[in-house]
């Protein structure tokens, strides 16, 4: 070991440096993690507690008599499988269509000649700045007049036009070398073939980012589904939970409510833990240039 290396080691393990690392790094992070994780842990634990352990002035951490009754009760109060199924359908169908539309639109903006291309891009950019809540009332009237209240397509349709994904993918497609596509064009490949054979595969990480952010957004989506559905058979999970909260909120039946919260939170938490790299980069886009 050379002399400089040795001094680096001494420096790294000097008492001062260890104290600084613990106080400046680990301690604040552990506090922050506790603040973040404890409420979620409390939710998960409470979802297995029977009612007497919830409605008490002397709560204990671990369930003394763990039970699945809370989950069974949620299933009775709102038709759980139906609501869960609705959420899955809305999330999958909505996300697939949105991602495909974003890919084809971004491809057109980058690789197909069109006179008004800049105007179209500007229109998409402006659409990105329109808060979805500002379109709520007219969209409600449009979908209602088409007979879309209390239907899954009524939940899915208004959110399909996608500016965010288009914008992100356009940036990615613009970085691709032109000769990559020119070679394919000489071979007689049409636009569709060039898109699926060349552009999409090399852009897979960006597409995955757009897809995951879209999936999480659809799953959590609340305001629009809340407005367009009032029959429980057609609700998505967050809307069903809103109903559950209004039924059980007054009675202190928090065991049921925590079981419901677990159902909407846990799937996203699992997906996030596995694929956080893509999700974080998608959600913090624009921050890091």
């Amino acid at each position: 070991m050379s002399a400089t290396n040795l001094s680096h080691w001494r420096q790294a393990f000097s008492r001062r440096n260890i104290v600084a690392t613990v106080l400046g790094g680990y301690l604040p992070i552990l506090i922050a993690m506790a603040v973040i994780v404890l409420p979620l842990a409390w939710m998960a634990i409470a979802s297995f507690k029977p009612a007497p352990e919830i409605i008490t002035t002397q709560p204990v951490l671990w369930p003394q008599d763990p039970t699945l009754d809370n989950y069974a009760h949620v299933a009775d109060t709102v038709p759980l499988l139906t609501v869960l199924g609705n959420s899955l359908i809305v999330t999958i169908v909505g996300s697939v269509i949105k991602v495909v539309l974003a890919i084809t639109t971004a491809y057109a903006l980058v690789f197909i000649d069109f006179r008004f291309k800049n105007a179209v891009f500007l229109a998409i950019l402006v659409a990105l700045m329109v808060p979805p809540e500002a379109a709520l009332l007219p969209n409600y009237l449009t979908i209602s007049s088409l007979g879309g209240r209390n239907t899954l397509w009524g939940i899915i349709l208004p959110g399909l036009g996608t500016a965010f994904g288009t914008f992100l993918l356009r940036q990615q497609f613009k970085t691709l070398p032109k000769d990559l596509l020119e070679a394919a064009q000489l071979d007689g490949a049409g636009h569709l073939k060039r898109l699926w054979r060349i552009v999409a595969p090399v852009s897979a990480p960006t597409i995955a980012t757009v897809a995951l952010v879209t999936i999480v957004g659809e799953w959590n989506s609340f305001m629009w589904p809340l407005i367009i559905t009032d029959s429980v058979q057609n609700m998505t999970l967050p809307v069903g939970l809103n109903l559950l909260q209004s039924i059980e909120g007054q009675t202190g039946s928090y065991g049921y409510l925590m079981a419901g919260a677990v159902l909407v939170i846990l799937p996203v938490l699992i997906v996030f833990a596995a694929l956080q790299r893509f999700i974080v980069s998608g959600l913090t886009q624009g921050a890091v240039k």
Partner: peptide, 9 residues
């Protein structure tokens, strides 16, 4: 990334 509905509950 979690549902605001679940977090609120």
């Amino acid at each position: 990334v979690l549902s605001g509905v679940g977090v609120g509950m």
